[in-house]
Write a protein that binds this DNA or RNA. Sequence first.
RNA 1: GGCCCCAUCGUCUAGUGGCCCAGGACACUUGGUUUUCAUCCAAGUAAUCGAGGGUUCGAAUCCCUCUGGGGUCACCA
Length: 465
Amino acid sequence: MIRTRIPPSPTGEDLHIGNLYSAYINWTFARKHNGKFIVRIEDTDRTRLVEGAENQILSTLRAYNIAPDETIDIGGPYAPYRQSDRLDIYKKHAEDLIVSGHAYFCICTKERLDSVRSEMQAKKLVPRYDKYCLARQDQVKREIDSGANYVIRLNIPADTEVVFTDMIRGEIAINTNNLDDQVLMKSDGFPTYHLAVVVDDHLMKISHVIRAEEWISSTPKHVLLYQAFGWDLPFFAHLPILRNPDKSKLSKRKNPVWASWYLEQGFLPEAVLNYLALMGWSHPDGKEIFDAEEFTSVFTLERIQPVGPVFDITKLEWMNGQYIMKLKNDNLRDKIQELYKENKLDLNILNLSIPLVRERMKKLSDYWNIAGMLFEPPTTYEKELGDQKELLEKVTQTLEAISEWKADVIGEKLQDLATAEKVPFSTFFMTLRIALSGKKITPPLNESMEILGKEECIARIKNAA
RNA sequence: GGCCCCAUCGUCUAGUGGCCCAGGACACUUGGUUUUCAUCCAAGUAAUCGAGGGUUCGAAUCCCUCUGGGGUCACCA
């Protein structure tokens, strides 16, 4: 049984786009193999905890149609799925490790740890804990009994090659001399990530640990933990890290990173996911546009490239435009309406405008910029029309004479007028466009005029001239 | 700095020893369609495959060194 997971930690305001990427890969891989996709909340850092983040993360994930099979609010066979609800489990496992000699108590102060580290750094050594407490466990335990704060550390053996296989990169070996005696249990009684992730992944029967590349260097600690517990290793696959244009790890200072931001901007979930699928992975047939269904059928972990891709919002916008063009009218209308629900757009105009805007939008939020003229008259004009009074007067007369207010009829009559007046179409219609919208760029004029209605058009032209 | 990962057009990538003096997509440029914009169509610019050594009849593809980029070195995940 394939079981995958993402372990978001509720320490930010929302799901990070990198986590969404990881989620999509994990979800897809699980579905491909008829497995389960688990979302486990890793809230062991009490100092960085953000209120409400947990719900936000889950709802964003669901907004992208990535539904967990097991998580905090739906439960599952290995509940609970929130680490703060599993404290007893970690405590017990940490104690097991103490008994087996793989871990030990430590009561060193922050000051001592700092000085040990800076001393080693000065000697150009890897800054590590010096195992001071390990040699005096009896005394340490006595001090703990009389109330001393303590942590539990992993007792990492010296000079040992830890080797594991990464499904994307192959074999990776790291010598334990580069590893610190990792704290497993913090003095507040909470486990650190390293203990919790190993214990939970094992207990929750996670078969494939698919996570970002930044975890590679701590994987040896996890491997050592699995071995200390006598457990089988899961498969590991480390995904490339999404990058800023300057190649550094995607960060909110340089890029929008919250997954819901893209939704708020009017990116479609399917488009964002499709774009994400192309990060480090390519369709075997070279296809660029494909949905989750197809991704699931052709996806393989082995095809993921280990190179860190730059997250290019320009290409995302193009792709989003492709998805918008494929939307059915009603569907597109509903999405626009949802985005502008505060403004309560006139439903009739909205409906009529859809065919006019669909090919012009890259994002749903482009709508107002393109179609705003259909809802309200211009207040400013991008071009002065003072010298066009006469022509506009004639336009008004022509429009007034039209009995059947249809785009093609309007267009025909206006072209006749332009011809009679010996004004080139491009000049003529640009003048009219400005008069009606104030803008040089608008949806097709005839259709827009039909939507606006005869009276509104005439009123706007009189106003402009 | 130590350790680890990585290296093909500006960006995302194809490519796993000969079909590649490197293909596609985005972006960009030009032309066509068009009543603006967009769509659509056509064409073009753009990588001496990071550099240097090997291996081989033959290397983007294998090996080594260097360089560059990234990640990581917490009682954060």
